[in-house]
Design a protein around this nucleic acid. Structure first.
Lengths: 112, 112
DNA sequence: CGTGTAAGGAATTCTGACACG
DNA sequence: CGTGTAAGGAATTCTGACACG
């Protein structure tokens, strides 16, 4: 469970590299954080660390802004999408819980 | 063809983060490069950039050194493994070439 | 051989602010 | 609102060298 591809979500990329990867300015990247659209981690010294997923998200954000969408709107969209995702996960887990209650806990497909 | 997971091989991690991820010292990381065991790219300013694959390789290298294997030996092992891989790829491609010559160029499984 | 360290300099990143609009 | 920029400082990284063994 929680099967992310491991590399994609690890926060290991500094802002300079993100700038290279996205073509955005550091100012833009920091501003989107200020507007709560992106959430880098920090090194001990205080430098920002981003994931590949963050890099892709940044590009999407920048595209929307270019289309005239305001950061506030983008944030609302993201929260909505996030909420929908959470709902789905809860639903999945409840169904799984029902199955477990009915047929007992199993890992993987039933052995034949 | 060339189906790498994209994130794993992209050189985007600076040496400080690699130090955090591996537990190795920067001195060690740079030394393994000097011994031709690892090949980071560079930013415009000259800072080293590593991939996740590099990070994993560094850990393997450090383990072997701890076991008393010298960098020179490790390098020979790596070259041998590399050569074997190349052989396999050539073989694969030749077989594919034969198949294409016999049955024409196809992409993916035959349509049913 | 493999690694630690001090040295000096350059590249990188940080924050808060002013500017434009 | 979103972004550029100059400012000053701190964290990061670089190289070449000396040390130990």
């Amino acid at each position: 469970m929680g099967n992310e591809s491991s590399y994609k979500d690890k926060k290991v990329i500094t802002i300079g590299i993100v700038r290279e990867l996205t073509g955005l300015s550091e100012r833009q990247i920091r501003y989107y954080e200020e507007r709560k659209l992106i959430f880098p981690e920090r090194t001990a010294g205080g430098s920002r660390k981003y994931s590949f997923a963050d890099v892709e998200l940044l590009v999407e954000i920048a595209n929307k802004i270019e289309d005239g969408v305001q950061t506030h709107e983008i944030r609302k969209e993201m929260l909505k999408a996030q909420k929908k995702q959470n709902q789905e996960e809860i639903r999945r887990k409840m169904i799984q819980g029902q199955l477990n209650a009915q047929f007992g806990i199993r890992k993987g497909p039933a052995s034949h």
